[in-house]
Design a binder for these strands. Sequence first.
RNA 1: AUGGGCCA
Length: 260
Amino acid sequence: VISWTAIISGHARVGDLETAQRLFDSMPERNRISWNAILVASTAGGNLEQAKCLFDRMPELDVVAITTLITAYGRAGHIEQALELFLQIPETDEVAWLAIIQALIENGQIATARSMLDLMPNRSSDLAARTAVINAYARTGQMDRAMELFQRMSSCDAVAWNAMVVACTAAVGAATALELAAAMECEGFLASAITYVGILVACSKMGRIEESRRRFWSVSFDHALEPIYDHYCCLVDVLARAGQLERAEDLVRFMPFVPN
RNA sequence: AUGGGCCA
């Protein structure tokens, strides 16, 4: 049952609900964790009603299953339902708290998110959890706390750095964000495509066209990354803000992405 | 083997 569940989980991760479902239906026995895995596959498929149907038919609902659905509701903009579910959890754990706080933030309910963050108990030193908390502080107007926690982290990864870089642009200033991005590379972390979104947004906020351009090319030349859609958007943004509308328009027309 | 963290 462990092997079957692991394979279902893999298909869930790449969004292949059909295969996940076929395997789930044909596996010889199922336990609570297999049901949770197929629920994840179902939410990843984007059909919330279908996921809710499955949820209602599940033989056992644990905090993992409920948290899965909370996250799905949050991403779909159904924050009331997410909150309702959270209140139904008999024994909340740290992941459940972080999931509802993240959902509140994504749905613009900053004040509530801030209160829940204050109420949240038992904080572990788990890397993802710490980063989630730091990010939540940053997005609820408590950048000082975010910085403090970040500096106290004994180990961190590129995701934590990216979160700080992005948060800095909004809450402190673009120049500080760029300094942080530089510090990140000094510490030996490779800038990822997402780091570059942060860097380009910062350049754009400061109106630095030349630096934006340079950084944009550096994405592929210095880091062997393919520029993603967001990078083109940043470049369009900085050109447009500087009044170079023709150049901005040309870029929209000729970039290798369909503009949204 | 299942849920939570970075992309303006």
